[in-house]
Simulated scan of single mutants.
Amino acid sequence: MQKPTLVILAAGMASRYGSMKQIAGFGPNNETIMDYSIYDAIKAGFGKVVFIIRKDFADNFKAIVEPKFSGKIQLDYAYQGLDSYLPEGFTPPADRVKPWGTAHAMLCAKEVVNENFVVINADDFYGYDAFKKAYDFCQDGVSESEWGIVGYTLSNTLSKNGTVSRGVCKADGKGNLTEINERTKIYWKDEATNTVAYEDETGEHLVDANSPVSMNFWAFHPTVFEKIQKDFDAFAPANNHNIKAEFFIPLIADNFIKNGGAIKIVPTSSTWFGVTYPEDAPTVKESIQSLVSNGQYPTPLF
């Protein structure tokens, strides 16, 4: 069986963090979070990495990543732009600046991905166990009728520096995803008692700290691209009035389930961490240094 591909979503604007955090250094030798993801993917057995980026920083991006990974794993690129894979005859609003979202970014990789693949964010640290579990699922579980999502424990994904957005997952008796509820303001209410809450327009609500959550780590069959294009062809015209509307991966997942598909929740023991706020950066550096000190990663990484 062909080795699966790792697709990395790196075209985001990093609006909250305020910089191009995809190429910011956090490791002891200035390694990026993405470097650790690629290291773990190579170790797990992935055969190719596809970076989804914007053309306006492509040269800078390539100059940074290619010396690190050339000869270690096959590299390829896809470019997300406002005019990429638009519905026939559709013109986006003239004042729209924001990209179309994660599912649209995935769609931009359709010409360079022909095998089972996983999708991750560039600026999230996922851990080796997650990549190994995803690799195994791509080999044994992914098909035209079954996809996968790596499930993290909610309490292992929160920031100490503010609210975060998390997709809280619900599963059926077979461990298949039934729904993802996007909670845009989840936070520690009391870390000492493992109490987590979220806020919405109706107020504050408690949520089980042990709930599985999506950190945008998915496993797909390449036929997903046909489904994304079909869904995007409907989404873009319907949301043309909203210049901030985004076409997210959970939208295509929801449609897939509604049309008879199954999405297996693949649990991982990995602890997630990432940089949502500038104040998170020291914690990320400390976490990576701890993993290096414990021998889980070499230094330098490559």
Rank of each mutant, 00 (worst) to 15 (best):
V266M: 10
I249H: 08
M215W: 00
S70L: 13
S155C: 08
G162Y: 00
N181P: 02
M13S: 14
Y39C: 11
P300E: 07
V266W: 05
I265Y: 02
R166S: 11
I64S: 07
F125T: 01
I73T: 08
M13F: 10
P267E: 12
S84Q: 14
R183N: 09
G25V: 00
S37N: 14
D129W: 00
Q296N: 14
D129V: 00
F247I: 02
P267N: 12
V284Y: 04
I38D: 07
G81T: 10
S269W: 04
K160N: 13
Y77M: 08
G260Q: 12
S143R: 04
H104D: 08
I53T: 12
Y128V: 02
I252R: 07
A10C: 13
W147Y: 15
H241C: 04
G203L: 05
D95Q: 05
N216C: 10
G12F: 00
G127C: 01
I42V: 09
P4N: 06
F51Q: 03
D140A: 13
V196E: 05
Q2S: 15
T91I: 12
S84M: 14
K68G: 07
G71A: 04
P99S: 11
G127K: 00
D136K: 13
I263D: 06
D59H: 07
G274Y: 06
E204P: 01
A192S: 15
A262M: 11
F51R: 03
T195Y: 01
Q289F: 09
P99Q: 03
W147L: 12
V224K: 01
T223F: 10
F46E: 02
N242I: 06
T193L: 05
I42N: 03
N294W: 02
K132Y: 12
A58W: 03
V7A: 14
L86S: 02
G101N: 00
S293G: 15
S211K: 04
